[in-house]
Design a protein around this nucleic acid. Structure first.
Lengths: 153, 153
DNA sequence: TATTGTTATACTCTATAACTATA
DNA sequence: TATAGTTATAGAGTATAACAATA
């Protein structure tokens, strides 16, 4: 089999396995994958409007309403009024949300250690470089097709 | 940031992006991710009991009932009686299911070409080797935690 | 008694469309 | 007129628990 296809299929497998493993460890924090993803972006970007979160997560604005409802009810984040646009809502992490994201960062470090802990550092740096290239292609691919939904040309 | 953590986070991002991209191309075939995954395993394993499919997909037997209902209604697969165990059901691909899986293989080849088409072959072989190692660790990790659900020791 | 698949029930993620308040 | 978020509605994936048929 072509090495490219082998890589693609292996990436697919890793995606499925990561989802399973993550789901489990997130459950221990009282989170689902979708909610953790939202909180993660909030942690990364700081206070954000729901509109921005929808774009970042590539889901519908309606979906964000539900996710924010859930993380707000569980005390991970809060809605604040936007200072200059009264239509908009700012979503911000609570202290509980912030410390949970820090825990998640530690969990990632532990998982990263388990996955490639005793591999050679040079080897890992080559791997990371190629992975970055592939991820960038994939980002472009998704962006290109996302803006061309039906397309009958 | 540690290169291991960088790799882990990038793998997570790739998982999310792949899911988005796959979802789109599967829609064109009249499939969802979960149903395509079931048909893919059927293509890979040949006729299988629902029990085996549940284990392979790491979902509940009840879930498989619903997925098989859906792919059967859409003509991708059929239920057959098991020759030696009257409790069990064999799920088999129809001709339509088989040709759809072949189309999906071709789609994978095209996607693989787009993701790493013009990268150096030696570089890709190193990448594939490390990716295989990481995938194997992940498989072990998932298997280890899957068999120890609550665990209060 | 254990196993295969199903019915019953419930929760979550996701989407589109219509609506309200604001820009 | 356009935008931010919500209510309404619907489909899909997932899980556990109880049950029937069979091993």
């Amino acid at each position: 089999m072509d090495v490219r296809v082998q890589i693609f299929d292996r990436l697919l497998e890793v995606a499925v396995l990561l989802q399973h493993d993550l789901g489990r460890s997130l459950g221990a924090l009282g989170l689902t994958t979708a909610r953790a993803h939202l909180l993660w972006e909030l942690h990364r970007l700081g206070p954000s409007t729901q509109r921005d979160l929808a774009a970042e997560l590539r889901v519908s604005p309606r979906n964000v309403t539900g996710l924010v409802d859930a993380v707000e009810a569980a005390g991970f984040a809060e809605r604040r009024s936007h200072p200059s646009d009264r239509r908009a809502t700012l979503v911000v992490l609570t202290e509980h949300g912030r410390s949970t994201m820090e825990q998640m960062e530690r969990d990632h470090e532990r998982a990263a250690e388990q996955l490639c802990g005793d591999l050679d550092t040079d080897q890992l740096e080559d791997f990371a470089r190629t992975l970055d290239t592939v991820a960038e292609r994939l980002r472009q691919l998704v962006a290109a097709t996302a803006t061309t939904p039906p397309r009958d040309a």
